[in-house]
């Protein structure tokens, strides 16, 4: 009780709205909107992408109405805890660190991380090859943790969103970048600005950093977790997932 009071007082002090859970049936879903092709905004401000489509499909399966709430990446988990929304569907990797604070559904897709640089710039991605180079990565991601741990001799530059990283890579401020391979392929390499750049090195799926795939985040102990897991299984079975998958990719991003 006391803790709750302290929390709301601090919340008010710092201008955050600590809404008590919405009594209505509408589910509020936190999405990022700056991570193509999973989540992006059209020029007229509409949220689109794989995450968004999956979110609506899951809501339909769960027979709940949904609204998308846009949230910058580094405030994603705090926003969930502050009840700005009830679930995160924003390509969030299920990691041990995050599981200490929030719960995850089973994965809804899983793709490896990979490096990108100018074509032919690097032959492999060994830490010794990238020593002294500047590598760009999105902060608060497993990719950032992986880089800081495995590439201590490279300069790691952390960005708020993936789109800023692409700008700086094409501008020549970065020697290489590491991110989810699908996001890189669809969001950058296959676009006009990605010309002259390519993947290099291995697929990175190191379990210590990248966990068991990407899941839907909910507050600790929330029964939504099982509802989402069940809904994911359902749309996998009934072909809705495949339909969304095929809209964006020419292979199954779910993984094994």
């Amino acid at each position: 009780m006391l803790k709750k009071i302290t929390f709301s007082v601090i919340g008010v002090l710092f201008g955050l709205s600590v809404n008590i859970a919405n009594a209505s049936d509408t589910l509020r879903i936190g999405v990022e909107g700056a991570y193509p092709p999973f989540s992006e905004k059209t020029s007229d401000g509409k949220l689109i992408g794989f995450d968004v489509d999956i979110a609506f499909a899951l809501c339909k399966e769960m027979k709940r109405s949904c609204v998308m709430v846009e949230q910058g990446w580094d405030g994603m988990i705090p926003g969930l805890l502050a009840r700005k929304y009830d679930a995160i569907i924003a390509s969030m990797t299920i990691t041990k660190e995050r599981q200490k604070i929030i719960d995850f559904s089973k994965k809804y897709y899983a793709t490896p991380g990979k490096f990108v640089a100018k074509k032919g710039e690097f032959s492999d991605d060994k830490p010794s090859t990238l020593a002294g180079k500047i590598i760009g990565v999105q902060s608060s991601t497993p990719h950032a943790d992986f880089l800081k741990f495995t590439y201590p001799n490279s300069t790691i530059r952390e960005y708020g969103s993936q789109e800023e990283i692409y700008l700086d890579l094409t501008a020549g401020r970065l020697d290489a970048i590491l991110a989810d391979s699908i996001a890189l392929s669809k969001g950058f390499l296959h676009t006009d600005s990605g010309k002259g750049f390519s993947f290099f090195g291995e697929n990175h799926e190191e379990r210590d950093f990248f966990g068991e795939g990407l899941g839907i985040g909910v507050r600790k102990g929330d029964t939504l977790k099982d509802e989402f897991t069940k809904a994911i299984e359902k749309i996998r079975e009934n072909g809705v997932y495949k339909k969304i998958n095929d809209k964006y990719f020419d292979f199954d991003v779910y993984g094994e």
Binding site: L16, P78, L81, E97, I101, S140, R157, Y159, G160, D168
Partner: peptide, 23 residues
């Protein structure tokens, strides 16, 4: 801090990002 410079705010953001906290 918006262009990757590690200033006071960025240090705070990095701590928040590391532990998924807001305050």
């Amino acid at each position: 801090s918006t262009i990757t410079i590690l200033d006071i705010l960025k240090a705070g953001r990095m701590v928040n990002g590391q532990y998924y906290v807001a305050y």
